[in-house]
Amino acid sequence: MATTTGHAPAPSHGQDTHGKKHGLNAELVGMLLFIGSEVMLFASLFTAYFFIRYGVSNEVWPPLKQDGEPFELPVMLTGINTLILVGSSFTLWWGERCLKAGDRKGLIRGLWVTILMGGTFLIIQFNEYAHLGFTPQDRAFSGAFYTLTGFHGAHVAVGLIILSMCLRRAYKNDFTATQHTPLAAGSYYWHFVDIVWVLLFLLVYVI
């Protein structure tokens, strides 16, 4: 494999004989472990959030802003946004399925739709920030809210960058039905970002 450009960023020596032998792909194992570590990062932020919510302050929930009004989150709009993001996971899955069936056009279409949906999610999120009526500096609650959603937004942005690279590679015809490790790794990451958002939506917005 002298110049297989379709390979992952950091291929391993002797991986061709070994990765296959053990039935595991080092790149995907690495991505799964990285996702595990990302899950723990969000877990630490959720911990902070719940400490503030059920911690020493014993205040009413949702807490009151500086002006005495309670914080309010736009559950309806964010619910629709959640559906958009979750939907993008399915469009990505559909694109991958097309590739595995040998349909490269289908993959490109799937990636485009996914990226556009992810972008829409981010735009709606920013719009929400602009109209929330509170800033990270207001109280501990608002800080935790912006930190959680902000970290998630950053992860969506990283996911979009990864998918855009995959899209470019897809145009260059670097992925085949059997050789598409970077795409698989990127899609793992995208699904993770979506699942975290569902959790975040349930734990922060809904309950």
Partner: peptide
């Protein structure tokens, strides 16, 4: 950024850091 994670009178919690 001026958040108040560890400012008790703003609803923050210093023990949370230690956990």
């Amino acid at each position: 950024m001026g958040t108040h994670f560890f400012v008790p009178d703003q609803g923050g919690d210093v023990i949370m850091y230690q956990h």
